[in-house]
């Protein structure tokens, strides 16, 4: 075997129940959870982490189910992204989720990657997602065991950017995340799964794993737009999900979430001030401004932070406009294809 960058030596632990998976995590917190593997295996090959074992949870059947009730959709953490993209129930109930799922990476990745894995995606940074040689030659950063963040050397935290597509959709849709741990199961709002800290962006306690997502059907209109250079493979330079409800012509619910710009998927604050108004130019401009003011893109990619900020804002305006338009679905479909 001569191929470069092999996986480090490690064992596979293959539990068949959630309890066994949690027990394995409790026994050794350094073990990593392996679901689809599209992110983890690449990171392992680049030496970003060196767990003694991988807990392969794909044998846990209960985590691979989609169940629908009148007011909720329950999606197991192991449901694959291609299934989310193709499931007619999800398309009709949660357009943003479908659009986010289909925007992830490339088709082969979506056949492996899971919704839980995409939620737990590692944050990314141009100084981190490199080979071990690269990081050693350049000098390590906060996230890779060094003393300083190369993106913002004066600061005390890591700015690696959360770059998952599914999380903003679920945050906009007001989904809850079910988490299993040594103390049993608990639920948190999707936005509360995350910290604004690139090194430890997931608020999971020791031994915990994400087991399911529950999405309410109460917000009728939703969508996701992603800015990237290529229509395949690329992580978002910025991604915007919006879910809204209108009563008559007036907004009665509005949630906007952005990915790619912060160390967590960011729920935009202040959208309640727009409720009760029609989706007109002034509302679109207000939404654009809210996004532009709250996102904090840093130099974690080769593309300038100001570009990612202005595009995030522009996508929010465009998406909200499309959701407010009478032929919402058609308009959004087109925008999704070009952004």
């Amino acid at each position: 075997m001569t191929a470069p960058l092999p996986l480090p030596r490690l064992r596979l632990i293959r539990p068949t129940t959630v309890e066994a998976a949690v027990a394995a995590r409790v026994e050794c917190p350094q073990h990593e959870v392996l679901a689809g593997g599209t992110d983890l295996l690449v990171n392992l090959r680049r030496g970003l982490l060196a767990p003694p074992a991988l807990i392969d949870i794909t044998g846990i059947a209960e985590l691979d189910e989609v169940r629908t009730t009148a007011d909720r959709t329950r999606i197991g953490a192991l449901v694959r992204l291609d299934r989310l993209a193709e499931d007619p129930a999800i398309a009709s109930r949660h357009a943003a989720l479908r659009e986010a799922a289909v925007a992830v990476a490339a088709p082969g990745h979506r056949r492996l990657a899971t919704v839980g894995g995409n939620l737990c995606l590692q944050t990314r940074c141009i100084y981190v997602n490199q080979s071990a040689w690269w990081r050693a030659a350049h000098g390590a950063c906060l996230k890779s065991g060094g003393e300083v963040c190369h993106v913002a050397p004066e600061g005390a935290r890591c700015h690696a950017a959360f770059s998952g597509d599914v999380a903003p959709a679920l945050i906009a849709l007001d989904a809850e995340i079910e988490i299993a741990g040594p103390a049993g199961r608990r639920r948190v709002a999707c936005a509360d799964l995350y910290h604004e800290e690139g090194r430890a962006h997931l608020r999971l306690d020791s031994g915990e794993i994400v087991t399911a997502i529950e999405v309410p059907t109460s917000i009728a209109h939703s969508g996701y737009l992603k800015e990237r250079i290529r229509r395949s493979f690329d992580f978002p330079l910025a991604g915007v999900a919006i879910a809204c409800r209108t009563e008559g012509a007036e907004l009665s619910a509005l949630r906007i979430a952005v990915t790619g710009t912060n160390s967590r998927p960011l729920l935009i604050e202040g959208t309640d001030a727009l409720l009760g108004r029609r989706i007109d130019e002034s509302v679109l401009a207000a939404a654009e401004k809210l996004v532009a003011r709250q996102v904090r893109p840093m130099r974690t990619t080769l593309f300038p932070a100001n570009h990612r900020r202005s595009v995030a804002a522009a996508l929010a305006r465009r998406l909200l406009g499309a959701l407010g338009a009478p032929d919402a679905a058609a308009g959004r479909g087109h925008a999704g294809g070009t952004a």
Partner: peptide, 27 residues
């Protein structure tokens, strides 16, 4: 449209097919 090699203090910042973007079939 998109291809570019870039360096961060002389470190190649483009040295993968994720950062060195060549067009896909959809582009």
């Amino acid at each position: 449209l998109m291809e570019e090699t870039r360096y961060l203090n002389g470190m190649p910042a483009h040295a993968s097919f994720l950062e060195y973007r060549m067009p896909t079939s959809l582009d």
